[in-house]
Design a protein around this nucleic acid. Structure first.
Length: 546
RNA sequence: GACCCGUUAGCUCAGUCGGUAGAGCAACUCCCUUUUAAGGAGUGGGCCCUAGGUUCGAAUCCUAGACGGGUCACCA
């Protein structure tokens, strides 16, 4: 049992003692006191008073928060309580609290971890700290689980991710990261709304997984008797809306991909996708730069951010490099290799990259890009003009049918965004889906796209020229908050089941299986238990055999 | 999926050559009415991740597994 622990039992006893004193350890109808930040602001004047008069007994203030430190000195005590804004110190003593309350309740039954309500007047201590001198102290919520140690805190990554609440209590910077994340998402939403985009919600359960190359999660709808796929991308639904006449839409929501997990991949992740009719991918790049400028301005971030060892310069406009040019200039792949399937394959093999011999030129180039270019793109860089065969949903360039009117945005060696002019030729789209299906046969590519005939039919009704883009929110937050694991920007990252929460089998006698703890003694040699009363044990064992 | 590292008290960590478990904080009992990781005296607290094996003897060595972290692979 998770409460089988001396510390927890001590705390449960204290909660019981509170009840015996007529105090509910979990009272209702508690309202939040003055925020700690306001307390410091509002009573700053007390610090300016004469040395022996640094208090204002005419004021009555209530603070609420969780006790983080307690220092008891006989008949008086200091504690630090924490609310949403931070720590604030309170002072309480025997003579200023109600009769007997200090010795029997406050000193004895309130401890680190408890949430309390403190009422009193502000004063400044001898060491110059603005503090609340308590006239009254109440329990708001009794904590029966002990907090980690106050100095080293909680560092175990596993506990931090599994018990994020504890991580947030102990590591204030965690809360800061998620506050930042919330602000970033809010700013992105406002930016698109201000630019005339409409926020929409499209299905999370798809009959055909589409809009990206990825393995889906599969679930089952009982009433319909059909399997459904958790969406890997909202793309095809958002484009259906464009066909329907919504000329600027966006969706901020989760995608699910049934793939490996690492520092930049969580099975569920958040992205924004937006579609902009009568615009092209150059407009998208400009809009993306404007978005970054807006976020940086609103968050008052410097243009150059530190990301681990890197310095990333977010000054706009961002660099733009065509895909094949990036291979030769940034990746230093010889020009003849960069555009030749056979040479490309040979080059990859020379450099120890395992590749499938059936890959088309575009896929070979993609391999070259991943291997030699991606990691070198530190400052934000748009890579443009992607090979058509790795861009099954993008519009083909009129000048060069081998390339797609597409870009991806990279920073700190990671992909952050992907945008392109949407393919709106229904017959071309049909053929591209077919080619993907064939690639699936040829190379066993499990992530290749599925044929979506309804989507082709939608395009058949005519879709205005549209540009669409997706931005990975988690990775963007990582960049802006200098976090290097996606788990640090997702509140509850995916984890394997926790074995510690499973019920442990009871101790039992090795001979008769008796589980009554009082009858058992530990084995003298080896592990396990035996019955103290050997005769009774033998009897039980005999009965068991029947 | 492969490899490397980790798992010991509530937390943070020691644990030597294989000889049967330690510290600090926290808890408990005392002292202490302006502390800042408060201080002082004392006490209790362990499935040493799990299961096998080697051994007279395993936290320690070996094998397998679980979970976590990292590197790579896969993957937008």
């Amino acid at each position: 049992m998770i409460f089988d622990n001396q510390y927890i039992q001590e705390r449960i006893n204290k909660a019981q003692k509170l009840r015996e004193e007529g105090i509910n350890p979990y009272p209702a109808n508690i309202t939040k006191g003055m925020p700690s930040s306001e307390f410091f602001e509002h009573f700053a004047y007390i610090k300016e008073l004469d040395a022996d008069e640094k208090k204002d007994e005419n004021q009555t203030v209530t603070l609420t928060g969780r006790i983080k430190f307690v220092r008891i000195m006989g008949k008086a005590a200091f504690a630090k309580i924490e609310d949403n804004d931070g720590l604030v110190q309170i002072y309480y003593n025997r003579d200023d609290l109600p009769e007997g309350y200090y010795n029997n309740i406050a000193k004895r039954l309130f401890e680190v971890g408890d949430i309390i309500e403190a009422t009193g007047y502000p004063f400044v201590t001898q060491t110059g700290e603005l503090t609340l001198h308590c006239k009254d102290l109440k329990i708001v919520s009794k904590a029966i689980m002990p907090l980690p140690e106050k100095f080293h805190g909680l560092t175990d990554q596993e506990i931090r991710y599994r018990q994020r609440y504890l991580d947030m209590i102990m590591n204030p910077e965690v809360k800061e990261t998620f506050v930042m994340r919330s602000k970033i998402v809010s700013l992105i939403r406002r930016f698109f709304e201000d630019h005339g985009f409409l926020e929409v919600e499209t299905p999370m359960m798809h009959p055909i997984p589409g809009g990206a190359n990825a393995k889906p999660f599969i679930t089952h709808h009982n009433a319909l008797g059909v399997d459904r796929y958790l969406r890997i991308a909202p793309e095809l639904y958002l484009k259906r809306l464009t066909v329907g006449g919504m000329e600027a839409v966006f969706e901020i929501n989760r995608n699910f991909r049934n793939e490996g997990m690492d520092q930049t991949h969580n099975p569920e992740f958040t992205s924004i996708e937006f579609y902009w009719a009568y615009h092209n991918y150059h407009d998208l790049m400009k809009l993306t730069e404007d978005l970054f400028d807006y976020i940086f301005a609103e968050l008052q971030l410097p243009k150059t951010l530190t990301y681990g060892e890197m310095q990333i310069d977010f000054t706009t406009p961002f660099a733009k490099v065509p895909f094949v040019e990036a291979l030769t200039t940034i990746g230093e792949v010889p020009a003849d290799v960069a555009t030749d399937r056979e040479k490309g394959l040979a080059y990859l093999k020379e450099h120890g990259v395992e590749v499938n011999d059936n890959l088309t030129l575009g896929y070979v180039q993609a391999e070259l890009f991943d291997e030699f270019v991606e990691g070198k793109l530190i400052n934000p860089t748009f890579i443009t003009d992607y090979p058509i065969d790795i861009s099954p949903l993008s519009r083909r360039s009129d000048e060069n049918p081998q390339i797609a009117e597409r870009f991806e945005l990279f920073m700190a060696g990671k992909e952050i965004a992907n945008g392109f002019n949407e393919l709106n030729d229904p017959l071309d789209q049909f053929e591209r889906f077919k080619a993907q299906a064939e690639a699936k046969e040829a190379t066993g590519d499990e992530e290749a796209m599925h044929m979506d005939l309804d989507f082709v039919r939608a395009l058949g009704h005519g879709m205005t020229p549209t540009a669409g883009e997706g931005i990975g929110i988690d990775r963007l937050v990582m960049m802006l908050t200098n976090n290097h694991s996606i788990r640090d920007v997702i509140l509850f990252p995916a984890m394997k089941p926790e074995s510690a929460l499973e019920e442990r089998p009871k101790n039992a006698c090795k001979k008769c299986g008796n589980t009554n703890e009082e009858d058992l003694k530990p084995a003298k040699k080896g592990k396990g238990f035996f019955c103290i009363d050997a005769a009774a044990c033998a009897k039980r064992a005999k009965e068991n055999k029947k």
